[in-house]
Amino acid sequence: MEVRSADCRALLPLPECLERDWARRALALLQGDAHRSADTHLIKPVFSGLDGISIYLKDESTHPTGSLKHRLARSLVLYGICNGHIRQGTTLVEASSGSTAVSEAYFAKLLGLPFIAVMPRSTSPQKISEIERFGGRCHFVESAAAVYAEAQSVAEQSGGHYLDQFTFAERATDWRGNNNIAESIFAQMEQETHPVPEWVIMSAGTGGTSATIGRYIRYRNLATRLCVVDVEHSAFYDCYNSGDRTTTCPRGSRIEGIGRPRVEPSFLPEVIDHMIRIPDVASIAAMQVLSDRIFRRVGGSTGTNFFGLCWIASEMLKQGRKGSLVSIVCDSGSRYTETYYNPDWLKAQGFELTPWKDALERFLDGGELSLPTG
């Protein structure tokens, strides 16, 4: 192709930049939300059996949309706007099992944008209702593994933007700081007896939060280690042990929001110090025990986190170690009244919680963790 020399006809009038004006207004709205909600409470329950070990729980259920995913949703929308993918009138599309979609629906409404959530039909009715209350629309698939391709297809058909939490979670958040969850935790710990935690313990859904925390720990050159707790019917644990990112699982996780049938792009095993996998019954038992102890209902993923924290604490007690442990309250249990807090649902799933709850209660009061067999 011949390249012509520049002439005065190429000197056009300056554009109005209406899209940039919309983006600036949108960013101001998102920044206002961040200032109001980013620094959630770090609560410190006391358990008499854990002598010398201080427990801290970052309560992300107090965000405006009730979960840890509020941070992720805001980051994904910011990432889309700053990369020029989200403009005035753009339809936002996400593949989500619930909480991320609730938060994204909130931000879509804040910015006046349409929102479509592609999710498994088994998603809890409470989450579906919350998405719709924010003006979002739910598009259902039968299998959790089908959400990715369907979300991409819906975005293409609508001319919208696929937010794709599973790919972009680890890169949309500024892991070096900017009041991300890791910076917030460590800032809040500064005046505590053991300000540098021995371990941060959490589960993985996209893998983005564990990536942020693991990177931040290394960036700050802290002695803290990161333990990720995986659940049944999830590919993450096997990937961590084998290094095989093609690992898949034929069934979807029963613990909403965590565990995935494939290894998500945002899951970074290289920044994780240890992983364990626990039975789903342990997650739900721990969820109910913790709810009773802190006088508020928490969700299933928080139960996963708390059981992993108890296991780490039991190992520290065996070794005579003291220090602090930090985990996360991911969301409120109010979203799971029809499932994890429903005796009929638990019975249908074959969950017998009593032995696990009894073991955890004895541990929290007496310091010895003796788990049910089988």
Results as ranks from 00 to 15, higher is better:
G49Y: 02
L50W: 04
A155F: 15
K127H: 07
R87F: 14
E60W: 05
Y79D: 04
E94R: 11
S75T: 01
G159V: 06
N178Y: 08
W175S: 10
S54I: 07
I128Q: 05
S75H: 05
R137L: 12
G136A: 10
C138D: 07
T167M: 03
E104C: 11
S153M: 03
H85L: 13
G112S: 12
Y148G: 08
A73I: 00
R137V: 11
L68D: 00
E130P: 11
Y162M: 11
G84C: 07
V147E: 05
S124W: 08
S54G: 07
E60V: 06
Y162G: 07
V118Q: 11
S96T: 15
L57S: 15
E132G: 01
E60I: 07
S75V: 01
S61G: 05
Y148E: 04
F115Y: 15
K127L: 11
M119P: 15
E94Q: 12
V102K: 08
F134C: 06
F166R: 04
K69W: 14
Y162Q: 07
Q157K: 07
T173V: 14
T90Q: 10
A155C: 10
A101W: 13
S143E: 13
E170I: 00
Y148I: 01
L68N: 00
F115G: 13
W175H: 13
C82R: 11
F107I: 01
G98R: 07
R74Q: 14
L50Y: 05
M119R: 09
G49P: 11
P64W: 02
A169K: 04
H70P: 00
L68M: 10
T100L: 12
R121N: 03
F140N: 00
Q157Y: 02
L113A: 06
F115E: 13
G136T: 12
L78T: 02
I128N: 03
H161L: 06
S99G: 05
R71E: 11
G136R: 12
Q88G: 13
H139R: 14
V118A: 05
A172R: 03
S124N: 07
F140H: 00
L110E: 09
A155H: 13
H161M: 11
G49T: 04
K58C: 03
L113V: 02
T173K: 09
A117E: 09
A73N: 09
S48V: 01
I53N: 06
L92G: 14
L68V: 14
